[in-house]
Each structure stands twice: as C-alpha cells, then as structure tokens.
Design a protein around this nucleic acid. Sequence first.
RNA 1: GCGACUGUAGCUCAGGGGUAGAGCCCUCGAUUGUGGUUCGAGUUGUCGCGGGUUCAAAUCCCGUCAGUCGCCCCA
Length: 436
Amino acid sequence: MAEKQKIYKPKAISGFPEWLPEERIAEQRWFDHIRKTFESYGFCSIETPSVEEIDVLLAKGEVDKEIYVLERLHKDEESDKESRLALHFDQTVPFARYTAQHFNDLVFPFKRYQMQRVWRGERPQMGRMREFYQCDIDVINVDNLPLSFDAEIASMIYETLEGLNIGRVQLRISNRKILLGLIESMGVTDPVPVTRAVDKLEKIGEEEVQNILIEEGLNADQASQVLALSKIKGGADDIRAIKAENDKMQDGIDELAFVLDNLAHLPTQAAIADLTIVRGLDYYTGTVYETQLLDIPEYEGSVCSGGRYDDLAGQYINKHLPGVGISIGFSRLFDVIRQTHPDKLGIGPKSPAHLLLYTEDKDKAALATKTAQTLRGRGFNVEVYHTVKKWDKHFKYAKSKMIPTICYPEDEQTAKFKDMATGEETIQNISDWNQS
RNA sequence: GCGACUGUAGCUCAGGGGUAGAGCCCUCGAUUGUGGUUCGAGUUGUCGCGGGUUCAAAUCCCGUCAGUCGCCCCA
C-alpha cells in the first residue's frame, strides 16, 4: 500500500466567505431579483476586471482602504517594467475609469449597474469581509445631472431591498452641504473631524460628541449648534424648517427637501432625513444615503450606502461628469441575514433538480437516459441516480437533497412518479407529467 | 494597526500533571411492508505550532500563529 499522502487540512480563510449549495441557491435568487429590479429601471450591466493599475486606484490621492496588490510568483526583470496591478476595493473607481475610457461610445446619462466582488484587506468581523459582493447602481452625466435621479435611485434601492424579504428597511438620507455649510460658516478649516464626530452621534451619544467638537476647536455655542443640527430627523418639512447660515447650507436644505418630496410615494418609514449621515471622507458632495435593517436589531450598520458626487472621473478625463450612485453591500446583507434570521433566506433544496430518476434494473440505463432527456426538454431539471445499491438508498438521497419527485421509467412513454411530500405514486405519460 | 478572549475528532464541546474522551455526523451491517424506528460494528486526532519546567505536559510557563469579538474604518 502507498504511504498515506500528506493532507493539507482544509480550513476557511477568514473574511473570504463561501456557501453550501443550498445557501448558494438562495444567494443566486437574491442576485436574480436585484438584477431584475435594476433592469426594470433601464439600468444596463457592465463588468470590469478584478484588477486595476494601482495608479488608477490611487488617482484620487490618499486612499485609506487596505488594498490587495497582485504579484506573480515567477517574477523576472520584465515584471518590474509592467505596471503594478491591484484588486479593486470598490466599483466606483473602476466605473469612473471605464466611463472616461469609453466616453465616446457611451450614451449619457449613463445608467449602469455592476454586481462584482471587491476586496479590502481589513480585519473581518460580523458583516465585514475581505472579499465580498457589492451591487452598485450609478447614473453619470456630462455637466449636469437632474436632482430627481437622487430620488429615483433611492426609490429603486428601496424596491430592491423590500423584495428580498428581510423585514423593514429604512433609507436615511442627508445632504452634505447642510452640515459642511454650517461648519464653513464657523470658520473651521478642516471639516473632517467634525463630520466624523457627528457620524458617531448615535453610537457614542451627545455628550461625547460635544466633547470631541470642543476638542476640535469649536466653542461651546458652535458645538451645540452642530449638535442641534445633527439631531434633526424627519421629513421634508423638518428640513425646510432649518435656518441656513449661508448659501451652501440653503442649497443642501433645498436639495434634501426636494429628494424627500420625490420619495413621498414610499411607506412612511422607508426614507427619512437623518442629518447624522455624513459618509466620512468620501468623494460625496451632496445627497448621501445609508440604509438600516429595522427588523434585524443584531446588526446596526448600513447595508447599502452611497451618494452624489460633483465630478467622478476628473482624474481620468477632461470632462465634468457629476453622478449619483448607491451600493448594496450584498455579502454583508446576505451574511447578516444568514447568521441572524436564516429562515428569511428560504433555504431549501441542496439541488436544483425537480426530479430524481432511478431505475433498479441496469438494463434500463438507456431508457433512463432517454426519459431524462425528454423531461429536460420539457424544462425540468433532472438528476439521474447512477448507483444501484440497496433499494432505499436513493430515497435517502432524494430526501437529503430535498428533490421533490422521484421518477421510475417504465417504458419510452410512461413512468412512475413518486411525490416525496405525500408519498403518492402515479403512473403517467412523461410528456404530460407536471410538478404538483 | 490597537485591546480582550479562545484554539482538543468533520461539527458542538468536556477533561486542567500519569494510556485521548462524549454527543452528533459519517461508513457498513441487522431489523423494519419503500424515506421512519431500534440495534450492532467501524473510521477519524502531530490536543494550533515552537521552546521551557518536570521522572512525566493536552494540562503549568514563555513565545508564536490562527480564530472570535470590540476599537478604527466601512458594504
């Protein structure tokens, strides 16, 4: 006998999720639903390579994302001359590069969706992975992009998420011009620490935010003013009631109120203004979105975020291309639901097969093949059980894979069909049989 | 990158100086008027890795790696 081979013990790589077949079926159902909804609004699909040149990814300047760089195992001197490649950490940057590159072939406003994996070398946690799917939708136009797109995109996203059977979802919308306008009016030069503090309001509480703001150089009055603004939540009227300190702030107020007005057709809690939403350091300049799962208290983070940017592709082309986009954190959403409310995934069969075809008699192999082909031709998924062992084996097999029907061919026209749920057996014509 | 906790069978875990364990799963068989029940048999481990203390370490000590959670950040 041969020596026992060295086994590399298989293990999961943290942050790189993979699913069992029955989970994968549920995941594919989600993808189908999302794709269908996006296309129902006339968005087209594109796919970009997993890699970009590092210079493209870094074109915006400082990028705080942890980027995975690609390297060949057998490097030579030639390799050093090639430009370095890295895995993309989002789909917005590749989309900007794509838009600039194919500018002359695209029709504007360009509306596209993109469902691909992205990679970030961060420490994994619940809802945070290193390889994950995002479903992005963006609209980009030359020079001007109507504000109504900001509402349409939110509306699409609500419809998409609502159809996934994950309980109530809530889009929280703000406009960065409001808070940034206020900060500017106070003469603060670097708004980032202030916005970051505001972003944490719900997590760390008012007092802590007030302290941070004062540490950042605001006086007590100003800090209170920022805090008071940040606490505003509600509808268009609540936003209109805000007193603007300058034109920028007024623009933000008008824009946010307009977007909310255009979302009035949604259920009351589906889309609200929430001025704590500021979206950190990103390129967003106007509308910003986050999305929370109201019925999944175990996870408080946002499962879908995005916003409007004045000019996305300025680093790649000498055109002014404003856009608005939002991204569903697909893997985060799927994994959070999988871990907290697996029932909501509707996980069922471990096989896509409608029928398991079985024959005890080896001589009937040709008949089995023919019957399977006929049924497949009629649109059914048919799995043939190849092993003839103990009689009850194929039952256990069908049951454990949750295949709903077993088919026993009789002759070229007829077969016995056993309904696994009821145990009922009937002899039927294979051209007539239908799933109950 | 920082902090806390955890690493023992495929999975969930017990054992805390003296021969490596349980349940579940899996495989095979028996029973059973088809899948259920019951019974029998069987496979599986560098006790995460390296060093130290000891007559003796899965167990105590040091280091290291990995994982989980929190921070940071974000989908």
